[in-house]
Amino acid sequence: MKEIPVSQAYRLLEPGPIVLVATSYKGRPNVMTLGFHMMIQHVPPLIDCIIGPWDHSYQALRATGECVIATPTLDLAETVVDIGNCSGDTVDTFQRFGLKPRSASEVKAQLIGDCLANIECRVADASLVDTYNLFILEAKRIWIDAARNERRTMHHCGGGSFTVDGGTLDFGDRMTKWRHLP
């Protein structure tokens, strides 16, 4: 075995797909790319996200307490990377990348019509933001584009490398202990 730096632990454990986070602050919409997030609870559905003060979206999320987490698919790979390489403080990300904003029901941030799924969220707990840049969000509404053909998502492996989802394994019949969960 070869030892690697502990700073690369995220490359081995990153649990979910790369997502886009949409915010709106002072009437200005923004989108950022995010890789540090995970589900932390089923009911109510809670999601943690690491968004630091170096990200333009940080101020919007702190001020408004709401956002949309959108799941892009493989056809948006280059756009997702390019969004991650710019900042909403100098770029109108919706306009620059030709994203299709859609009105949300519970939050002012826009849904991203180009994505497979959109989750409207409100900050449920900000007590760890100052220490760890960790926002705990509660999912309020979820929208899925059921007609979308491309469904493969991307997972960041570090250094510009991504893993792409492929097939699905269905072990539902073996999950006897967890059948009660939705």
Rank of each mutant, 00 (worst) to 15 (best):
120 E>N: 14
147 A>D: 08
9 A>C: 15
152 R>V: 03
99 L>R: 00
140 K>N: 03
71 T>V: 07
25 Y>I: 06
17 P>S: 05
46 L>Q: 03
76 L>W: 02
101 P>S: 02
127 S>T: 07
50 I>E: 12
162 F>M: 11
60 A>H: 01
5 P>T: 13
87 S>F: 12
169 L>C: 04
175 M>R: 12
20 L>T: 07
103 S>K: 14
118 N>D: 09
134 L>H: 11
175 M>I: 10
127 S>M: 03
10 Y>K: 11
138 E>L: 09
9 A>L: 04
42 H>S: 14
170 D>L: 13
95 Q>L: 15
107 V>N: 03
174 R>K: 13
155 H>V: 02
1 M>F: 15
95 Q>P: 09
165 D>P: 04
85 N>S: 10
48 D>I: 07
2 K>V: 13
33 T>M: 03
152 R>Y: 10
120 E>C: 10
174 R>W: 05
140 K>T: 08
106 E>L: 15
177 K>S: 12
162 F>H: 08
15 P>E: 04
126 A>T: 01
88 G>N: 02
47 I>F: 00
115 C>P: 03
58 Y>E: 11
82 D>W: 07
48 D>A: 05
114 D>M: 02
125 D>A: 07
121 C>T: 08
181 L>C: 13
134 L>M: 06
77 A>S: 12
63 A>M: 11
13 L>Y: 13
101 P>T: 02
60 A>E: 13
143 W>L: 01
146 A>P: 12
76 L>M: 09
162 F>P: 05
106 E>N: 14
56 H>G: 08
119 I>D: 06
133 N>I: 06
44 P>M: 01
37 H>T: 09
19 V>K: 04
46 L>K: 04
116 L>I: 02
154 M>Y: 10
21 V>E: 02
20 L>D: 03
57 S>L: 04
108 K>L: 08
22 A>V: 03
69 I>C: 07
129 V>G: 06
142 I>V: 08
7 S>K: 14
26 K>V: 11
43 V>K: 09
